Simulated scan of single mutants.
Amino acid sequence: MNITEQRGHVDFGPLPGVDAIVIGASAGGVEALIKIFSLLGAGFRLPIIAVLHLPDERRSRLAQVFQQRLPIPVKEADDKESIVAGTLYFAAPSYHLSVEKDFSLSLSLEDRVHYSRPSIDILFESAADAYGSRLAGILLTGANEDGARGLAAIKQHGGLSVIQDPNEAHVPIMPEAARTLRAPDLILPLSDIGQLLVELERTHA
């Protein structure tokens, strides 16, 4: 896709219509997510489902931290709950998070993927199966290759695949692995990824 920037506004060219956004990050991910979500306004209509690698022993406070900063509902994903538009979901520590065909969420204790549970690959691949071409996947900074295969699956299903520019990532291994495996549709700095979320919501039908 061709991207141009005029007077501080990024023109991404024609964007596909999407019904959901999935995001994965590891090392440096909290700061990256804070930056890209800072542009979200009240009434944002797309669901966002995020996996962020955290130490197993740490009880996650991600939902509370981001709820204090964002004007949209934020919660830790529960097993069997239906995905609600305009809500940001975080994967719970030590559980894989999947999207089912009926657009509900499920938690599982399957083996780790790239030493990680929750796994970005599992979220991305299951979401690609559920949403098909109506999905955007975004892979950010991280220190392993989790998410590369999942982002390739999103693109294979016709969805929009996006990585953070490895040159500005806190740790570039994760977005670089995705770029090597299958060229993403967009390679963007964090500031432009935030703008992309706004544009995807604006064009949502």
Results as ranks from 00 to 15, higher is better:
L139K: 05
L40I: 15
A148C: 01
I34H: 05
Y89I: 03
S26M: 11
P172I: 05
M1T: 04
Q164Y: 07
L200V: 06
D56E: 15
D146W: 13
V51Y: 14
V10P: 03
K75L: 15
R182E: 14
V162G: 06
A183V: 01
L33M: 15
A63M: 13
S116R: 10
I187R: 10
A136P: 02
S60V: 11
T203C: 01
K155Y: 11
N144F: 07
R58F: 15
I34N: 12
G17R: 05
I138V: 15
P172L: 03
D78Q: 15
L139W: 10
V171H: 14
L39I: 04
G17T: 04
P16I: 01
E5M: 06
D165F: 11
P73Y: 03
I21R: 06
L39Q: 11
E168H: 00
Q6E: 13
M1W: 08
L15D: 05
Q164F: 03
Y89H: 03
I34P: 00
P118C: 12
Y95S: 14
F90P: 01
A178C: 10
A153G: 02
V18E: 07
I163S: 02
Q64I: 09
D19R: 04
D121Y: 11
V198Y: 00
S133R: 11
G13F: 12
E31T: 13
G17D: 12
D102K: 03
S116P: 10
